[in-house]
Design a protein around this nucleic acid. Sequence first.
DNA 1: GCGGAACGCAACAGGTCTGTTCTGATAAAA
DNA 2: TTTTATCAGAACAGACCTGTTGCGTTCCGC
Lengths: 198, 198
Amino acid sequence: MTTVRRSAGRKRDPRTEVAAREAVLDLVGEGATLTGLSLVAIAEHAGVSRNSLYRRWKTKDDLYLDVLDAINPPLPDFDRPSAREDLAAHLAVLIERTLDRRASSMLRALLAEAAAFPELHRRYFAEIVAPRREMMYRIIRRGIADGEIRSDVDIPFVNELLVGPILARMGSGSSEALDPRETSRRIVDLVYSGIGVP
Amino acid sequence: MTTVRRSAGRKRDPRTEVAAREAVLDLVGEGATLTGLSLVAIAEHAGVSRNSLYRRWKTKDDLYLDVLDAINPPLPDFDRPSAREDLAAHLAVLIERTLDRRASSMLRALLAEAAAFPELHRRYFAEIVAPRREMMYRIIRRGIADGEIRSDVDIPFVNELLVGPILARMGSGSSEALDPRETSRRIVDLVYSGIGVP
DNA sequence: GCGGAACGCAACAGGTCTGTTCTGATAAAA
DNA sequence: TTTTATCAGAACAGACCTGTTGCGTTCCGC
């Protein structure tokens, strides 16, 4: 986004930026693609002149970058009694995010069009995926140190097993709304105990 | 696809249909979207005249339907000694499919643009997802009947846990090539035994 | 050999999006 | 009050895609 420092003149309407981001989320949520979405459509849906969009964002990429920032929820801190509870709490946040249909559509579109928006794709992994994954690793390591989780497990592998079902649902655009707390608890329970008969 | 039965006249070049499907896979694999991909670009990449495409497929949807059919591998039969081995074998097929970059891109694009291609989306779930899921359910049920898998597990839930990590990788477009046999075995092993300390 | 269909190539009108450039009006600071 | 930047709205050329039509050519079966 282009931030300009000037002394005099009319101030930019802050609602314009919000309206533009909301318009992108609405339209992508309705099935538009990132490359296919036109500034005309965005301006129209936002109730804003195209001029105002071009004044703020040089390219569509810049606008999408802002949208990605806006839907990136803060990373919560965890320090519950057990790693098990921390894992469940973290997965619950992930599931909650899945329930935001517009954000899910935006991320699906980004993953599908990664080739067309390499910078967006890079930032998504660096700023959203990586920190959350690192947090999961830390919790799992703690569980091992506490004697709660077997010490011979492959940490990244365990993480994939935990988050996989949730990400797969987001990726396939499943419309079924899961209860975050209950579902995360069930996942952790099953991964802890396994399905095999002792 | 439009199949016409005529008695006389020049025959259609069968290579045209293959070239068109390959062109779609190539272009989508390179980052094109289903809505954004133009018949001009497809014809150009396939080395075929636009006319030939219009003659075969009324709309882009029809062409994509053919492409989806082409990348749908046959459903293998399973009857190994144990449910554990059947599950691993089935997951290995899924992982193998993930390794086909073009097919993965095509499915990612389809999921991202489901709203624009409802018929394609419906067929994908009915013809590709549903039969494979049903097969997984059957194997899990058999494992329960054989006393190999705990009888109190939720079958669809176990299935999601098993296939989730693989689908999540496909959805995120991970470029890392996994060994199908080894990875599927590791997933099944971990899901059977669990990560918890007994 | 001849009719018929598919072939590649080219052209066309109608539509859309982009990026830029005008306007006149509005709002806020100097 | 004057200055200055923003605002909405409209216009423009250039590019692209679509769906259709016409052309002459190539190939296959009758």
